[in-house]
Design a binder for these strands. Structure first.
Length: 464
RNA sequence: GGCGCCAUAGCCAAGUGGUAAGGCAAGGGUCUGCAAAACCUUUAUCCCCCGGUUCGAGUCCGGGUGGCGCCUCCA
């Protein structure tokens, strides 16, 4: 069995590197979470699902994982939204944090070990900024505090750009009070009507980047193993985090930076101006949420992917294939006259999965292995030598993997009993070869959106 | 202008220098009260183009062409 280290692509080096954690067996990871002013969209979902997948896999591989993901709950977008709704920033934030957890749960994203909010981290943030001022990395200009980028010699090491190169883009905002055009805000002086906090520099609120540095330190300590986010966060967000933290630490904030790729919608960049952003709340009404998740993990996390209805239809069909196989397995296992036998050795499958995921979390290959398992299960079930242990081995493996992929079907209880009694009634009719009644029941169920499938061991059903 | 990414069948998507995984769709077949599912089978002599390295390249190198991202809030 493969005992080699997990390889992961490190944005810092631009290469795949073996995962060697600061503390053996423990992975500390932090991933940038949402600004909670709205429902999250499919693009956000890709980042969340990517790091949920990484976390699940690390745990699967036996690591103890400490995972933190933040909520940005003070920011211009929130302030605008609050004004728009004639309410407070806090109300907006609370509302959409709740909505976050609902949607995250829908697509199988587990809660992090901590979900710190900026407003709960204010003291640490102010202290952090203060230390940067004291050590000369930051300066006060008016009521603002700015980080002086040239003071940090390695500025640009993540985005692989020098200060000059950053400038030549000439899109960097030039302000009179900045000593250098690439300097960025750590603390923003309060404007009337905005939420603000007391600080040594007067009332104000934190800039965007500082929260992550402060939260990492507070919840995970000075150094973490993996820092994640969308690849658009490379610059300036993560670059600035590195500058802030490492200016004080003098050593790396995170050993590995991982960045997931973008999602396009019908081959166009998703953006609000194009009006094509789709939130997960709406999508989950339209498609099986697991199909959504499968879509997100069916490509390697660094590849750009394209969202379209056509692709989603394919994903729905693929989910059906998995479900059908699993449900047949369970039906067979319910059979009362099943011979006993030996459990199967499925280590070949397991090795293939580990090999795929160890290689920079290649979930595209890993899902291929999953479908190979499904094929083998289907083949086995057509054979004549089924045993309880044989079926059990497959079900156990399948469920372990579906759990790893976050695709395990959650039981919906509501109308389940009603449907099952109809299904049973129909089976009785079929036994009596009263096909007229059997078909009538099927029509009725179809109208309810329930599909049937007759197998030798019984009937399985599923909903749209 | 700077930094970086991608180009594989009708669609999606892997592919570590050794002769193209997997999913969806489509055709044919087996099974079946019907239907569905499942299984079998067919579908890229070829991986954007041109050179080069090599016994051998989708896979490495150089040059094109075509997409895209970041440099500004952004997953």
């Amino acid at each position: 069995m493969d005992k080699l280290a997990i390889q992961l692509y490190n944005s810092l080096s631009g290469k795949k590197e073996p995962l060697v954690t600061n503390k053996p067996g423990v992975v500390k990871m932090y991933s940038c979470g949402p600004t909670v002013y709205n429902f999250f969209h499919i693009g956000n979902a890709r980042a969340f699902v990517t790091f949920d997948m990484v976390r699940r896999y690390l745990i699967y591989r036996g690591y103890q994982v400490k995972f933190v993901q933040n909520f940005t709950d003070v920011d211009d977008k929130l302030i605008n939204k609050a004004n728009e709704l004639n309410t407070t920033v806090e109300t907006v934030a609370n509302r959409f944090i709740e909505e976050y957890f609902i949607d995250a749960n829908t697509i199988g994203i587990e809660k992090a070990d901590a979900h710190p909010r900026v407003t709960d981290t204010m003291e640490d943030i102010i202290l952090f900024i203060d230390r940067l001022v004291m050590t000369g990395y930051a300066y006060v200009a008016g009521g603002d505090v700015l980080f002086e980028t040239p003071k940090f010699a390695e500025y640009g090491k993540l985005s692989k750009q020098s200060l000059d190169e950053l400038l030549s883009g000439s899109r960097v905002e030039v302000s009179d009070y900045k000593r250098h055009p690439t300097d960025f805000t750590l603390w923003k002086a309060a404007k009337p009507g905005e939420p603000s906090w007391d600080s040594p520099w007067g009332k104000g609120r934190p800039g965007w980047h500082i929260e992550c540095s402060a939260m990492i330190q507070k919840h995970l300590g000075d150094h973490i193993d993996i820092h994640g986010g969308g690849h658009d966060l490379i610059f300036p967000h993560h670059e600035n985090e590195i500058a802030q933290s490492e200016a004080l630490l003098g050593s790396p904030l995170a050993k590995y930076f991982m960045h997931n790729g973008y999602i396009n919608i019908n081959n166009e960049k998703m953006s609000k101006s194009l009006g094509n952003s789709v939130n997960v709340r709406d999508l989950a009404q339209q498609y099986d949420p697991r199909a959504l998740r499968l879509f997100l993990i069916s490509a390697h996390y660094r590849s750009p992917i394209n969202f379209s209805d056509e692709v989603m239809q394919q994903m729905m069909a693929a989910i059906q294939r998995i479900d059908a196989s699993r449900e047949h397995l369970m039906l067979r296992l319910q059979s009362s006259y099943l011979p006993e036998g030996d459990p199967f050795d499925l280590s070949m499958f397991e090795s293939r999965l580990l090999e795929a995921m160890d290689d920079d979390f290649n979930s595209a290959i890993a899902t291929g292995v999953l479908f190979d398992l499904v094929r083998e299960i289907n083949l086995y079930m057509r054979s004549d030598d089924l045993t309880r242990q044989g079926l059990g081995s497959y079900l156990e493996k399948l469920d372990a993997w579906l759990e790893l992929y976050g695709l395990l079907q959650l039981e919906k209880v509501e109308d389940k009993e009603k449907i099952e009694s109809l299904v049973k009634e129909r089976e009785e009719a079929r036994k009596e070869r009263n096909f007229a009644i059997a078909d009538a029941i099927r029509v009725k169920l179809e109208e309810m959106g329930v599909h049937l499938e007759d197998a030798a061991q019984g009937t399985r059903w599923w909903r749209d």
